[in-house]
């Protein structure tokens, strides 16, 4: 399932290309953006299907409720902007109009996480998963590489109901063999088998976890690596089985440690398999400007920092 071809690709390009493919097959697909179509790459869809593309301008709340109206009439609606503006600014519209009416709106947000980089804290969505996860009846998905982005977008187009799909600004290293990997919303994945600890991740931190785990293996620490692209609805079994075996769980995400995957893991474990859990993400803090790799290091999310942090965690009895 994993690939040896570590090519680096833009998930936003993948998103735009996939929209065009889907739009060709299905005339019901419409796409909305809020003046960021060149960043989110919904512009690709606009070029091919201008009549099914609506630029709502710098008015994200209007975009979300307009998307709701289109979806109410049977359209499959993709609405995109940066994760910061797609969630926090439109929370009421998403909750009270899209989700309460269970409308078929796919919010595909780019620029999730600290790796927005130089734009700094105002643009770094570190709470978006937390916001979305708290709303009933919305699926929350954080794909980890471009082959998964493509499949998640296809899944979204073919599955009714509200979804929040988070894509980073950064290019992503290939993780999955696109010919063998099949995204399944019902089953999280075990990517590596270990006995000493469980590491749970998704999104762009997954590759960091895989790299850190290689180094941990060199010092004799073997980890179960679990990929949870679907944060909500949360699937408990794989995590439960792994935690019962290893009794130590580390969660790594490009998001605040409050309310995201780390919280979802803790909520699950406290019910099904109480375990020691170490949540690695941004602390209860705002981000700041910086180069992407520098920021990953600074906030302890790079493979190197993860290795150091997990080593420390493993020493704690």
């Amino acid at each position: 399932m994993l690939t040896k071809n570590t090519e680096i690709k833009s998930p936003r390009n993948t998103y735009g290309d996939t929209l065009v493919e889907l739009g060709t097959k299905n005339p019901n697909i419409v796409v909305l953006d809020a003046d960021l179509s060149c960043s989110t790459q919904t512009v690709k869809f606009k070029k091919v299907f201008p009549e099914r593309f609506f630029n709502c301008g710098i008015a994200e709340q209007d975009m979300m409720t307009t998307a709701a109206g289109l979806a109410y009439c049977g359209k499959i609606v993709f609405a995109s902007t940066f994760a910061m503006f797609a969630t926090a600014r439109c929370l009421d519209q998403i909750r009270n109009t899209i989700c309460y009416s269970k409308l078929n709106v796919k919010i595909v947000a780019t620029h999730g996480g600290i790796t927005v980089g130089e734009d700094g804290a105002s643009h770094q969505a570190l709470e978006d998963i937390s916001f979305m996860r708290s709303i009933p009846d919305i699926k929350v998905i954080v794909p980890a590489d471009c082959s998964e982005v493509k499949q998640v977008i296809e899944y979204a187009a073919n599955t009714p109901g509200p979804m929040y799909i988070r894509i980073p600004r950064t290019n992503l290293t290939n993780i999955f063999d696109e010919n063998k990997y099949k995204f399944n919303p019902e089953t999280p994945l075990k990517l590596k088998d270990g006995k000493d600890l469980t590491i749970v991740s998704n999104g762009e931190t997954l590759i960091e976890v895989l790299n850190a785990a290689e180094k941990l293996k060199e010092v004799g620490i073997e980890a179960d690596i679990l990929h949870y692209p679907v944060v909500k609805p949360f699937h408990h079994n794989l995590l439960k089985e792994s935690a019962i075996k290893t009794k130590k769980v580390v969660v790594v995400e490009n998001h605040s440690v409050i309310g995201g995957l780390g919280s979802a893991v803790c909520e699950s474990l406290c019910q099904y398999a109480p375990s020691k859990v170490y949540r690695i993400g941004t602390k209860d803090t705002f981000g700041q400007s910086g180069e992407q790799r520098e920021l990953m290091d600074f906030y302890g999310l790079s493979d190197k920092k993860l290795y150091e942090k997990i080593l420390k965690f493993m020493d704690v009895k």
């Binding site: 419409v30 409720t65 709701a68 109206g69 109410y72 519209q93």
Partner: peptide, 12 residues
């Protein structure tokens, strides 16, 4: 929110 919903419906 109703007006935006109505606009979306009108577009559809």
């Amino acid at each position: 929110q109703g007006l935006s919903i109505a606009v979306g419906i009108a577009l559809a």
